[in-house]
Design a protein around this nucleic acid. Structure first.
Lengths: 239, 239
DNA sequence: CGGGGCATTGATTCGGATCAAGGATGGTGG
DNA sequence: CCACCATCCTTGATCCGAATCAATGCCCCG
């Protein structure tokens, strides 16, 4: 469990900056706090509706984004039409900074989503003069790389139940505790595409956990964790 | 087919620098050429024997490396003892620069391997004064990220044959052609761990390709590509 | 020339995909 | 406010691909 996903319960109310500024799939845990102060002034707010496209794979890169509320799906289509989701950006996460000249992924709003966007050119210019900002960006990129690795390792050789359990724990954030309610902004299909499974298999895993009284499912967009430890056991060895 | 692996036939004779300087799994295709001139002078040569450890996951980070000859396996052990290989570094590739304070992966020599190593502290210092070097490192990190993404996407939802075919093509490098001989420095088990398969399945795929006259297998450490196009068809949709 | 690690092949098992129905939910218009 | 409809979710039955289990063969190295 290393890949981060901001604890989505509280995230909307704490739109502070953190080093997760460059990469692209999910996000990066904040360092202390007010990093990236330097680029704060560049930001402008924008909104996207359910399933609306923020940018397409191949688009030229204009902006990097930070999620204020909602969630963003970062995906790619294979030639035969399957969709693979490389990551989600949740409130507090940043994305779009890991691209070169063109976006390597498509970004879509999962539901109603509010973002702050930054002109990349401006950020890059600021970087030239600011060693601290530079180091933050570099650190963030490195973390992203480590996360991608973790995701990768989780997907090769974890069972369906392990993947789903690990995913729920990621949604729960850094300090999961019994009884906590986790918001699940994305559809089952999105989860499946992210975990390399099918919708049915994700459902079955969730149902199974529910039968085992490890979680409760009050509704489609929320899950309550009843036994964190059991869930962690199920998630097994992301190491 | 986006994740790079230097064409290993010619690589040993062209130990030039390229932007693949920061990330960690395989490597990054060179930009034109003599990038990283700036850190060349920091390098010192070192050698490792078959299966020797270069650094362990969790070690504090001292050096970054460039492969001169041989091959390096970048892996991690899961809690239950399984090994996952995040990538290979082949001649010309660099690794060890994508880590933060501690290595997130273990690096081992696959066979007899010669490396050049760079004190990271020195490189970082050089970065402060050299915007060009900085940009190169940044670009490299971004590419690494994109590669990790590609690997990730390949592993979720590709069949065993597709993965093996794609892997062989990666070993073959950028311009594969009929009749070319590809060196396969790693064992079947390594390939399996990298692709998220078992040794047996990798073998079966290779045997199958051989029966279909798409490749020939003169010995364990080499494969001849007889029909690139067929192999690409098999590799399917890395997109 | 013998031995030990790899590689290969075959038989069987098992997990998750696929195919096929239902059942819940939320959004819309009457 | 309710009924309807589309979309999403859930569950069940079956199938298939890769893992697992089990030999055997092949090199390479001492």
């Amino acid at each position: 469990m290393r890949e981060p996903m901001i604890a989505n319960t509280a995230a909307e109310s704490t739109p502070r900056f953190h080093p997760a500024m460059l990469g692209m799939p999910p996000a990066v845990r904040p360092e202390p706090a007010d990093s990236f102060e330097a680029i704060r002034k560049f930001g402008s707010v924008c909104r996207f509706g359910r399933n609306e496209t923020i940018f397409n794979r191949g688009d030229s890169v204009r902006y990097a984004y930070r999620v204020v509320s909602g969630a963003v799906r970062l995906s790619r289509l294979t030639r035969d039409g399957q969709r693979r989701i490389a990551g989600f950006a949740l409130p507090g996460d940043m994305f779009g900074f890991g691209f070169g000249a063109n976006c390597s992924l498509t970004a879509e709003a999962v539901g109603e989503t509010t973002l702050v966007r930054y002109l990349r050119a401006q950020v890059e210019r600021a970087c030239e003069d600011d060693p601290v900002l530079r180091r933050q960006l570099m650190t963030m990129l490195r973390q992203r790389l480590a996360e991608a690795e973790d995701h990768l390792i989780m997907l090769t050789g974890q069972s369906a139940n392990e993947r789903v359990a690990a995913f729920l724990l990621r949604l729960a954030g850094e300090s999961p505790h019994d009884g906590m309610s986790v918001s699940v902004p994305m559809r089952r299909q999105d989860i499946a595409d992210y975990l390399g499974l099918t919708t049915e298999t994700v459902c079955r895993a969730i149902s199974e956990f529910q039968r085992a009284r490890i979680i409760a499912v009050p509704n489609r967009r929320a899950i309550a964790i009843r036994d964190v430890e059991a869930l962690q056991d199920l998630a097994g060895d992301t190491e």
